Simulated assay, not measured.
Amino acid sequence: MNFTETAWKVFNQSINDYHITDNVEVQVKNPYPKDSLEHLLYAKNWIDTVQWHLEDIIRDENIDPTEALKLKRTIDSSNQKRTDLVEFIDSWFLQKYREISPNTDAKINSETPAWAVDRLSILALKVYHMNLEAHRESASDEHRRNCSLKLNVLMEQQKDLSEAIDQLLFDIENGNIKMKVYKQMKMYNDESLNPILYQNVKNA
Score class of each variant (00 low, 15 high):
69 L>M: 13
69 L>G: 12
69 L>Y: 15
70 K>N: 10
70 K>F: 06
71 L>R: 03
71 L>M: 03
75 I>S: 04
75 I>D: 03
76 D>R: 09
76 D>L: 13
76 D>C: 14
77 S>I: 00
78 S>K: 00
78 S>D: 01
79 N>I: 09
81 K>M: 04
81 K>W: 01
82 R>D: 06
82 R>P: 01
84 D>C: 01
84 D>G: 01
86 V>H: 02
86 V>T: 06
86 V>K: 01
86 V>D: 04
87 E>Y: 02
88 F>W: 14
89 I>L: 02
90 D>F: 03
90 D>M: 03
90 D>N: 00
92 W>G: 08
92 W>V: 09
92 W>A: 12
93 F>N: 05
93 F>M: 01
94 L>A: 11
95 Q>A: 03
95 Q>H: 11
96 K>G: 04
97 Y>K: 10
97 Y>A: 15
98 R>D: 10
98 R>F: 05
99 E>I: 00
99 E>S: 01
99 E>R: 04
100 I>Q: 01
101 S>R: 02
102 P>L: 03
103 N>L: 11
103 N>A: 15
103 N>G: 13
103 N>S: 11
103 N>P: 08
104 T>E: 07
104 T>D: 07
105 D>E: 07
106 A>Y: 03
107 K>Y: 00
108 I>P: 02
108 I>A: 08
109 N>D: 15
109 N>E: 09
109 N>F: 06
110 S>V: 12
111 E>N: 14
111 E>D: 09
112 T>V: 00
113 P>M: 02
114 A>D: 02
114 A>Y: 03
115 W>F: 10
116 A>P: 07
116 A>C: 13
116 A>D: 10
117 V>S: 04
117 V>L: 07
118 D>L: 04
119 R>N: 06
120 L>G: 03
120 L>F: 06
121 S>N: 05
121 S>F: 02
122 I>N: 14
122 I>G: 09
122 I>P: 07
123 L>G: 13
124 A>D: 06
124 A>K: 02
125 L>K: 14
125 L>V: 15
126 K>H: 13
126 K>I: 13
127 V>S: 00
127 V>R: 05
127 V>P: 00
127 V>N: 01
127 V>A: 05
128 Y>F: 10
128 Y>M: 10
129 H>F: 09
132 L>Q: 11
132 L>S: 11
133 E>K: 14
133 E>Q: 15
134 A>S: 15
134 A>H: 07
135 H>F: 02
136 R>Q: 10
136 R>V: 13
138 S>Y: 09
138 S>M: 08
139 A>E: 11
139 A>V: 12
139 A>T: 14
140 S>N: 10
140 S>I: 07
140 S>A: 14
141 D>N: 13
141 D>A: 15
142 E>C: 14
143 H>V: 09
143 H>Y: 08
144 R>I: 02
145 R>T: 14
145 R>W: 07
145 R>S: 14
145 R>K: 09
146 N>C: 13
146 N>G: 09
146 N>Q: 10
146 N>M: 05
146 N>E: 10
147 C>T: 06
147 C>A: 06
147 C>V: 06
148 S>P: 00
148 S>A: 10
